[in-house]
Every structure is written in structure tokens, then in C-alpha cells.
């Protein structure tokens, strides 16, 4: 009784950081590179925008080193919309994160889409007031990120590919292992922790609750409304769309359709209705055509 009456007080607490992830559930977070795109995203019902200089498809095309965005560009996007604004930092680049926190960004994505700054360490995310989301390809990676303070996990998928296959692989791997852990006995949990290279208390928590301690979102390769609904039916709790919207022929109707598909993800009649007449999606690429896999970044 009264377990919560005397909780931690103040800003930047774990509950406050995790709470914003809870508020984004069932929503769509859209990559935008200008204030104009941010307004289109907000009008289309996005629950947040990700401010960046180039969408992943362009980062892939251009090559070179991809870094944090220019603060001026982030501020323009912050000023343009009332919904939360996220921004990306390079894996391990805690100074980029300090700068984004100083800018008042609402969520930081420590992202494999940018060129990693540290090939051993991720950021100590407990050291920040602003919450972090991190990508994962499997449950072990997800739990290592959570143990470093991530308050939201997303599948990595293969960003900028327009191909959902990797996101499906990652979601199935994470959620499949969660299901197996809920069937494991207490002795087997030690083996699971060893096999996943993850902290035992987090594995035990999954065994007890049947889910990650933070929300699990889908990112990487979503191009059409059906992709969003597929991820939601597989168990994702919200959707990131990167290149899929603003690399398509007609971004606004596609953005709206993906928002509706994410809400009504089990209603095939609504999915059929919103999928009609959207114009051409981004072309997309097959995994065998890709020479740089972003998902392999992160440890």
C-alpha cells in the first residue's frame, strides 16, 4: 500500500523520462529536414518529429561522416511545431548529446544511422535529464541499452532502405526471445542473461512482466501504411518513419495514411481505405544491394 506516495521528486527522473515514451505509443514519429516538413508532419498527425539534416536514404547515398544536425536547423524545427522534437547523436558522442539537451530537444536518438564516434562505448544515458531512445537488433542489445539508461527501444531495421525485412527480423527476434523467457524457470534465466550478454535483473524482470521495462517501437524501412500495421501487429508499440515519407512522391497523404494505419492497425477495411491512391512510395533497395549496413553499428 502507498508504494508510490513518496516517489522521487523533480525533473529528469526515470519515470518522467520513460513517461514521454508512454505518451508516444500508438503514434508515428517522422524524420524531417526542414521546418516546412515538420509542419506537414504535425498536420498529418505525427506524435513527434525527428529533426535531422539528411534523411537516412540521403546519408546512404552521400556517404562520408554523418554527424549531429546544425543547432540552428533544430531550433527552426522546434519553433515550427508544438509536438515533441527528437534529434540524433552519434553512438558514444556524449558531447553532441550535451548540446542537444542544452537546446531543449525532447528526446535524443543515439543512432546507428550517424557515423559512430565510439566503437566500444555507448553514452551513459543516466547522466542526462533528456530521455534517450536507442536501436536494437536483438533482445541482448535492447537490454544493454536499457542498462545504460535508454527509456525507449526501437528496432534498427535497415534505415534508408525502404525495405521492412530487417525491422521484421529485429522485432521477431526481440519479441520471440521475450516470449521464451516468460516460459523459462528461474535457473534458466541465468543462462539467458549469459547468452544475451545482458544484466540478470532485467532478464528476471522480463520473466515476471512479460515485456521490456520500456516501450518497444519499430524503425527502419517503413514505406507504406501496411508496413506500419505489420510492425504494430507483430508487437511494436509505435512507428518511426524515416525516408519513407519525404522520399515518396506525395508526402502529406502518405504521412496521414501511415498515421491512420498505426492507430487502426488491426482493421483491414480501414487499412485498405487509407492505402488507396497514395502515389509512388520510395523505391527502396534489396538487402543484397546494400554495401553499408547501418544495423551492424552498435555493440
Amino acid at each position: 500500500m502507498s508504494s508510490n506516495i513518496a516517489g522521487p521528486q523533480g525533473t529528469g527522473t526515470y519515470r518522467v523520462k520513460r513517461g514521454l515514451a508512454e505518451m508516444m505509443k500508438g503514434g508515428v514519429i517522422m524524420d524531417v529536414v526542414t521546418a516546412g516538413q515538420a509542419r506537414i508532419a504535425e498536420d498529418a498527425g505525427a506524435c513527434a518529429v525527428m529533426a535531422l539534416e539528411r534523411v537516412p536514404a540521403d546519408i546512404r547515398r552521400d556517404g562520408g561522416v554523418a554527424r549531429m544536425s546544425d543547432p540552428q536547423m533544430i531550433e527552426e524545427i522546434k519553433a515550427a511545431v508544438t509536438i515533441p522534437v527528437m534529434a540524433k547523436v552519434r553512438i558514444g558522442h556524449f558531447v553532441e548529446a550535451q548540446i542537444l539537451q542544452a537546446l531543449g530537444v525532447d528526446y535524443i536518438d543515439e543512432s546507428e544511422v550517424l557515423t559512430p564516434a565510439d566503437e566500444t562505448h555507448h553514452i551513459d544515458k543516466f547522466a542526462f535529464t533528456v530521455p534517450f531512445v536507442c536501436g536494437a537488433t536483438n533482445l541482448g542489445e535492447a537490454l544493454r541499452r536499457i542498462s545504460e539508461g535508454a527509456c525507449m527501444i526501437r528496432s534498427k531495421g535497415e534505415a534508408g532502405s525502404g525495405n521492412i525485412v530487417e525491422a521484421v527480423r529485429h522485432l521477431r527476434s526481440i519479441i520471440g526471445d521475450i516470449r521464451k523467457i516468460t516460459q523459462a524457470d528461474s535457473a534458466e534465466l541465468f543462462q539467458w542473461a549469459k547468452q544475451l550478454q545482458a544484466p540478470l535483473p532485467l532478464v528476471q524482470e522480463i520473466a515476471e512482466t512479460g515485456w521490456l521495462p520500456v516501450p518497444l517501437f519499430c524503425a527502419g524501412g517503413i514505406a507504406i501504411p501496411a508496413d506500419a500495421a505489420l510492425a504494430m501487429q507483430l508487437g511494436a508499440e509505435a512507428i518511426f518513419v524515416g525516408s519513407g515519407i519525404f522520399k515518396s512522391d506525395d508526402p502529406s497523404p502518405r504521412a496521414k495514411a501511415i498515421v491512420e494505419a498505426t492507430t487502426h492497425f488491426r482493421d483491414a477495411d480501414i487499412l485498405a481505405k487509407v492505402s488507396r491512391g497514395l502515389g509512388a512510395p520510395m523505391t527502396g533497395i534489396g538487402m543484397d544491394e546494400i554495401n553499408q549496413r547501418f544495423a551492424e553499428r552498435g555493440w
Binding site: 506516495i5 516517489g7 521528486q9 523533480g10 525533473t11 529528469g12 508544438t82 525532447d106 535529464t129 533528456v130
Partner: peptide
Amino acid sequence: RNGYGRQVDSFERD
């Protein structure tokens, strides 16, 4: 809307 500020200003209190 957002009358208390951005996410870094979010808080918990009795």
C-alpha cells in the same frame, strides 16, 4: 499547451 515547458522541464511531485 506545454505550459510547463519542454520535456527537460517535466517533473514529478507530491
